[in-house]
Every structure is written in structure tokens, then in C-alpha cells.
Design a binder for these strands. Sequence first.
DNA 1: AATGAATGAGCCTTCATTCAT
DNA 2: CATGAATGAAGGCTCATTCAT
Lengths: 190, 190, 190, 190
Amino acid sequence: MHEKKKMILEVMLRLISEQGIHATPMSQIAKEAGVAAGTIYHYFPSKEALLNDLYLEVKRDLGLVLSGGLAAELPAKDKFWKMWKELFTYYTQNKLMFHFSSQMGHSPMISAGVRAEGKLFYQPIINFFEQGVASGAFRRMDANLMAELVYSSVAATVSLSLLNDVDITEELVQQAIQFSWDGIAAQHNA
Amino acid sequence: MHEKKKMILEVMLRLISEQGIHATPMSQIAKEAGVAAGTIYHYFPSKEALLNDLYLEVKRDLGLVLSGGLAAELPAKDKFWKMWKELFTYYTQNKLMFHFSSQMGHSPMISAGVRAEGKLFYQPIINFFEQGVASGAFRRMDANLMAELVYSSVAATVSLSLLNDVDITEELVQQAIQFSWDGIAAQHNA
Amino acid sequence: MHEKKKMILEVMLRLISEQGIHATPMSQIAKEAGVAAGTIYHYFPSKEALLNDLYLEVKRDLGLVLSGGLAAELPAKDKFWKMWKELFTYYTQNKLMFHFSSQMGHSPMISAGVRAEGKLFYQPIINFFEQGVASGAFRRMDANLMAELVYSSVAATVSLSLLNDVDITEELVQQAIQFSWDGIAAQHNA
Amino acid sequence: MHEKKKMILEVMLRLISEQGIHATPMSQIAKEAGVAAGTIYHYFPSKEALLNDLYLEVKRDLGLVLSGGLAAELPAKDKFWKMWKELFTYYTQNKLMFHFSSQMGHSPMISAGVRAEGKLFYQPIINFFEQGVASGAFRRMDANLMAELVYSSVAATVSLSLLNDVDITEELVQQAIQFSWDGIAAQHNA
DNA sequence: AATGAATGAGCCTTCATTCAT
DNA sequence: CATGAATGAAGGCTCATTCAT
């Protein structure tokens, strides 16, 4: 991708994460990206379009991180723990991503279409849950619900971690993963 | 509380829920609340203050709903199920509350202080979890983490429910509660 | 009408007349009208609306001037000469009106609806021409066409007059009126 | 003339005619002319210069059309009718030219110098009127005034014609020409 | 207390123009 | 000659807030 376009997206991610969307004028994005205000409009038709593009970028990136963990040949339980941990680590180490995702998660500025498009990046995870259910590793549960429940568990834990502004203890993280696992695992796996 | 103040808060809740903060000017709030623009400033020093006040209102209301369920003399498990279900029902039947909470959950417009103050309303729930841990009904887990995990589970389920714009099947709700319960219950309760 | 609204319209008329619409920013209108930029938007929803309102103002005013001359009890020919002269004098003494009308006459910024509404103010003149045709004072001619031809004759004469920036000689004006009169008079009146 | 230059002028004529000057950015002209934005500036120093150039083009073309009709050996009255009709037909069949001329007729964007230069193309017509006056075919009248009056009559008729978006009836056209002729003809010619 | 006209800083966006390639 | 990415000044408009009544 063009370097300037990249820079614009990068700066916007940071500014939104730090200040929120409504406190982040295009002029500031331009300034900190080292381009003229008008230049942004060569790459994005509007602030809203830029935001939606960024949303997809972030979701794509996240999707890749998660899917990567699924490639390994491991038992469902191990895959699950790995994925959970990876997502947690990713968010913890990329606070910008997490804050952005949190703020945009329920924002009316992300169009339904883009939101749906973003969901596609999580399809591998949905598939993973479906297979787990089919194989008997996980209990009978709607895969979408399962994905949402697990994702929200991770997010809640990350949120707690970042709130304290100190690394949450490893023990707490283990408790949280255990929470999620016990919530989806087939009874005999508990 | 003065009726106009009440009206202002009520209207703002609805408008933010429907349009988002950005798309909700003070003038519209005034208009739909049937007061003059300046009147709002008799009750609230600024838009941000109004928003934060509303945030507390909503949290207080929610805290009351949840705490009410804890008064009954029931086994921990039953209390938990009851509380989960009540929260779910409350949000499902008060979409405005849910949308508002979702949007404000990670908004930079809510001050840290107010956010902390809002947390106090959940203290009874935290206490409930702590007692549950102490009594051995729940597993050893940080009560705050537990509260966050459970809350996020409910929220995820509500979100899914409202997204589909149809009542999620009772079966799915049961799956979600079971997920939460298995995540916190002491092993021998699973 | 409110004084500020009046002032805004007045200033805009002058500025458009002198500089043209696209060289007249709202900020300048505000400044010269002695109001804040935002104030204009209390009275007019947009620059275009303001322009269209002004257009109607001008047309109304003009319609009144013309209609006034028709009230007198005079032979058709005298009425016609009077009206022609009055319009010429009006435009000559109100250059702003003339320049504004000239610029807006074919501008895409005036909506079709407003243009049609503006035409209503000329209905008395159309009626006058129709009656003249019916009474045999004027020749058989479409009254709308007649009105357009006469109006354009006056406008052309005014334009010539203002271009030279000196008062066109009375002789020329008489020639122009004669031109119009001979163009519409029944042959035996020529 | 270079083909690209021609294309640029052509496209600008169309776009201004259809959208007006304000709504016609250089970028659109470039795009629809199939050249790069910068290329326009090889041929014209600025948008205003381009506009003024186009203005002269249009006036030149029009002058040629009109002058052509004057070459024939015909009585003054016939020449006049021919010329009137030719101008009317030209504008009716070249709406772009007419709309452009109408919009630029009183626009502050055309410089006084260029406007004067454009007038030169009409000199043959002015001459024709002067000769007609001298020969006694036309009445005593300032030739410039005469030219303006006649031109404005044609323009008014064309405007009416295009407004209705249907060909004005031949009868109306005849009425309009008769109007103009009776306005300039020596009395005994009426 | 209540009003709502008025303010004006600030925002998003456009677009004529430039210049390195 | 031609390109088109980049510029940045400027414009229309919004809206939180104030204040005279």
C-alpha cells in the first residue's frame, strides 16, 4: 500500500484510540501524518470512509492473528487456549487496536455493510468452533454465540488489564481462560 | 427530581441510543424535551456533564435491578441464574439502556471518576461473588474479574439478540447462562 | 421583518451585485451585516436558501413597482409607456437590483420552484398585456412572449445605460420605448 | 488548434452549460476531456483565462454565423428576417451555446476587456444596422441600441422556447420577429 | 426559572493550482 | 508535452454555550 495512505491510517488509529473519534479532526490527522489536509481526500472520500477502512484493516489484522493459531495440529483444547492467549497478548501489546475496537464496536459510524464484511475475517474461528462442536470437543452451542461469548471474555479481561495499567497477573489470566474453557468444553472435558 | 431535568435526561438517553452522541446536538435534546436550549444549562453545566450524569443514572438504575434479585434467600446457583436472566431481560426490554451502555462503555467522554462512581452501584454484585467464592459455591477467582466476565457474557448475548432484531431463542439464552455458570461454578457443581 | 434578517438580505444583494455570488462568502455577508456567521443560519437554512429568498424579495419588490403603475386610469398606450419608463427608472436608480436580477436570471442556483413563484409577481403585467390584446390595443400575440420581449428590451436598454456608466440620453430611451411600443401596438396604432 | 485544447474548451462549454461555473471544477473538465488536470494549465494559465478564452470562442462562432447571413444580396428587411431567424435557429439547435451565453452575459468572471473584444465580432451586424438607418430602411436609432434590442428579443424568445422544452410554435416565432421588425423598421415599412 | 436569539470557534470538505517525474 | 499526486487556503455550515430579557 502507498506509504502515505498507510501513514494516515496509522495516525488515525492512534488518535482515535487516544482521543476518540469526535475529538480527532482531520486536520490533526493530516498534520501528524505529515501530509496536507487535502491529501487525505485522495485516498479516502470522507472521514467516515477513512474510519470504515481503518475498521476493516484492524479486523483483517486481528483475523490473521487468530487464524494463524489455528493452523497448528493440536487438540481442540490446546488450540482454544492458544487462541485465547494469543488474542489476549495481541490486544495487550497493541493497546491501540484494542481501544479502537472497543470504541468502534458499538459506534453508529461503522456501517452495517462494513461491519458484516469485517465479520468475515473471523470465519475461521467460527469454523473452529463448529468443528469443535461436531467433534464433541465442545458442548452443543450455537457457534456464533460461542464466538461472541469467548471474544467478550477476552475483551473483558484485556479491559481489566489495561484499566489497572499494569500487567494483570498471570494467575488472573489463567482464571479467565479457565472461565471461557469451562463455559464451552463438553462436560466430560471439564 | 424536577420534571424538566428528568425529561432532558430521558430524551438524551433515547437520542444517544438511536443516533449516537455525535449526531445528537443539545438543540435537538432541548427541542424534543420541550424546553429551551438555555434551560438545559440550568440543570447541567455542559453537555459532557449531562452525559456523565446520565451515565450515573443508568448505572444506578441497573444496579438497583440487579441488587433486587440478590435479596431473596436462594442458593448461590439459583441467585446467579436469576440475576443473569434479570439483567438479560432488563436489557432486552430496555434497548435504550443497553445501547447507551454499549456506546458509553468505552467512550472517552465518560470521566474516570464517574466511571469509578458508577462501579459502586455494582458493589452488591461484587459482594455476592466474593461470598460465593468464600462459601465454596464458586471457584477461586478474583471477584472483579468474575463480575466483568459475567457481565460481558450477558452483554454479548443481548447484542446478538438485538442484532437479529428478533427474540433470541430461549435455547440460546440457556446455553449462554450455562456458559457463564460453568465458567464460575466450583468444579463439583458443574 | 426582523432587522437582522433585513440587513443580511440587504448586504447580500449588494455584495452579489458587486462581486458575484461565488465571490461572496457567507463570512463576508455576516461581517458586513454586523452579525456572526452563525446568525445567518438562524434565518436561512443555507446560502442557497438565502439566495432564493433574496430572489423572491427582489421579484416581489419589482412586481409591486410595476403593478403600481397599472392602477391609474389611462389608455393602454399611456399605461405601457408609463410602465416601461418606471421599470427603466427603477433599475437605473437601483443598480443593485438590476445587477442581481441579471446575474440570477439564468443562474442554476435559483430553483425552478422559486423561479416559478417569482413569476407570479408579474401576473398583473401579464394580465395587462392580455387585456390589451383582447381590447385590440395590442396586436395578437402570446401575452407571455410579449412580456418577455418587453422586459428584455428594458433590460437591454438599462444594461447599455449602466455600461456607459453615464445616464443614457433621454433620446435613446425614447427610441427604446418606441421600439417596444411599435413591436406590440396594433398596426393602426403605429 | 491542438486537439486537446479543443477538447478542453468543448467539455467546459458543455459542463458550464449544464451545471454552471460554480459546479464545474477543473478536475471534472480534465477528466471528461480525457487529459490530466495539469495539462489544462499548459494551454490556459488559469480557470478564469480558460473561461474568457471560451467566451471569445463562442462569440466568434456566433459572429460568423450572423455575418454569413449578411453576405447575400437581399433587401434590408429580408436580411433582417434571415438574420433573426438564423440566430434563433442557431441557439435553438445549440443549446449549450445559448446557456453558456446567458450565464456569462452578466457574469463578473468575464473581464471587461474580453467582453469588449467579443463585441468586435458583432461589428458586421452593427454596420448592417447603421447602413440600414442611413439608407432609410430602418428608423433613426442608435445602432448599438438597435443591436442590443434585437439580440435581447431573440434571446428572450429562445429562452421561452427552451424553457418549455418543446419547440415553440412557428407562429410565436413569427410574432417575435414581427415584434423586432416593427420596432426598428422605418414607419412606412411597417 | 426559562427563553431562544446570537455567538464564533472549529469542523469537514472542495478545488484551483503546482511540480516532480 | 503530459501526468496526477499533493498542496493548503478558503468556504459553508454546525453546535456548545452565553446572556439579555
